[in-house]
Each structure stands twice: as structure tokens, then as C-alpha cells.
């Protein structure tokens, strides 16, 4: 239908858009906005998987693509926005690291991700252009996900960070091997899904107990 080059280009562009959504998450302070951006990000990721599945004939990825779009781009965002509605916390107020600094640090992370990915790619002689461009970006998405968990204090942000990280993992998997074995993929999936459910319940409980979802307060449990 399409030649490999066009598909590669499509994947690259989608991956870059995913990176943009990740940066927008870092730049925002509204929890609802995080969730929406995450939904968009997951949807784009689903599209990448779809492209890989259709373009390179890897049919098992199709299942992963559909799962991504259904679960990550629809179910999880809806569940999270319900949680946000319930706990009535809409904004991230105080940060470990403020937004401007966060953005600059994330830019550094992208460069770091590139320098990490480069030797691997060069050692493997990956001549495929798409991998060359997408792998650094997916590693960057992973790192920024972890960064979000460090920089933000609200529990919902932590969940978003975790999910972003997982999206990065999936993207890098897609870019290197056109998808891991289906069983691994689905395994990770349910892992994440359960994690989100549990965390969602946690957030709700934390809020009930401490009247806040600021994870700083959990330190009080030590006493």
C-alpha cells in the first residue's frame, strides 16, 4: 500500500508529536490537562502501533494497538478524570522543581537520551532511519516520565508520570523490534492497568485520610 519510507516518516512524525505532548504535560499545572494530554499521547502511540502493524505486516501488534487505544487512550483517562472530579483537586500548586527549570532539564534529558541511544544504534548498525530517530525520542519520553514523577507532588501527576514512562517503553519497543512478543506486551498492559486502578483507589484513600493528595504528607506515616 505505502512504501517503507513513507511509513517510517509517519512513525517519526508521530513519535515527535508524542514528545511534544510530553513537553506539554511538563509545562502544565492542571491535572485535567495532564489526563487529556496523556489520552492524546496514548492515541498517537496507538497510531504508531497501527502503522507498524499494517505497514510491516506484524499482525500481533494490531492487538496491542487496539488495546492501547481502548485502554490507555480511553478507559484510563476516563477513570482518572473521575478520580480528579471526586477528589476535587484540580491544580498542581507547589512543585519540587518549577516549570521553567523543568522544561530546560527535560530538554537536557532529550539530548542525554540521544547520546545514550547513539552508541547502541551505531554498534548494532541499525541502518533503518526510523529507529535512528525514534529510539532517542522514546528513551526521552521514558526519562521525562520519570522526571514528572520526581518533579510533581500530586498523586495523579505521579500516575501520569508512570504512564508516560510506560508509553516510552512501548514506543522504544515498537521502534527497535517492531514490537515485543505479544505476551510480554499484553503482560505489561495489564500490569499498568491494575497499577492505575490500585493507584486510583490509593489516591482516593489518601485524599480521604489526609485531605490532600500531596504525596509529601505520606511521610507522616513514618510516625
Amino acid at each position: 500500500m505505502f512504501d517503507t519510507q513513507t511509513i517510517s516518516l509517519g512513525i517519526e512524525i508521530l513519535a515527535a508529536t508524542i514528545l511534544v505532548t510530553t513537553f506539554l504535560i511538563v509545562s502544565s499545572r492542571s491535572l485535567m490537562f495532564y489526563v487529556r494530554l496523556f489520552a492524546i499521547q496514548s492515541f498517537l502511540l496507538g497510531l504508531v502501533a497501527l502503522l507498524v502493524a499494517v505497514g510491516f505486516g506484524e499482525t500481533h501488534i494490531l492487538i496491542a494497538a487496539i488495546l492501547t487505544i481502548v485502554v490507555k487512550a480511553t478507559v484510563i483517562p476516563i477513570a482518572l478524570s473521575k478520580v480528579i472530579d471526586k477528589i476535587k483537586v484540580r491544580k498542581e500548586i507547589d512543585f519540587t522543581i518549577n516549570i521553567t527549570t523543568s522544561l530546560l532539564l527535560c530538554a537536557l534529558l532529550v539530548i542525554l537520551a540521544d547520546s545514550v541511544a547513539r552508541p547502541i544504534l551505531e554498534a548494532q548498525r541499525m541502518s533503518d532511519l526510523a529507529v535512528f530517530k525514534v529510539l532517542p525520542m522514546s528513551i526521552a519520553v521514558m526519562m521525562i516520565g520519570l522526571f514528572i514523577m520526581i518533579a510533581r507532588k500530586q498523586a495523579v501527576s505521579q500516575i501520569i508520570g508512570l504512564l508516560t514512562m510506560e508509553n516510552g517503553v512501548f514506543l522504544s519497543g515498537l521502534s527497535i523490534t517492531y514490537g515485543m512478543p505479544l505476551i510480554v506486551e499484553v503482560g505489561i498492559f495489564f500490569d499498568i492497568f491494575v497499577a492505575v486502578l490500585i493507584l486510583g483507589v490509593f489516591v482516593f484513600r489518601i485524599n480521604q485520610t489526609f485531605d490532600t493528595i500531596n504525596v509529601d504528607t505520606i511521610r507522616r506515616l513514618r510516625h
Binding site: 513537553f23 530538554a107 532529550v110
Partner: peptide, 18 residues
């Protein structure tokens, strides 16, 4: 700053990646 960082990254990514 998002615009600034994105644009800077665009230029850096273009210049260093493939």
C-alpha cells in the same frame, strides 16, 4: 518557555539525530 524549549530541541534534534 515550552515554545522556546520545543524550538531549541527541534534545532538540536535536527542537528544531532540522523
Amino acid at each position: 518557555m515550552v515554545a522556546f524549549v520545543l524550538s531549541l530541541l527541534a534545532l538540536i534534534l535536527y542537528s544531532i539525530i540522523g
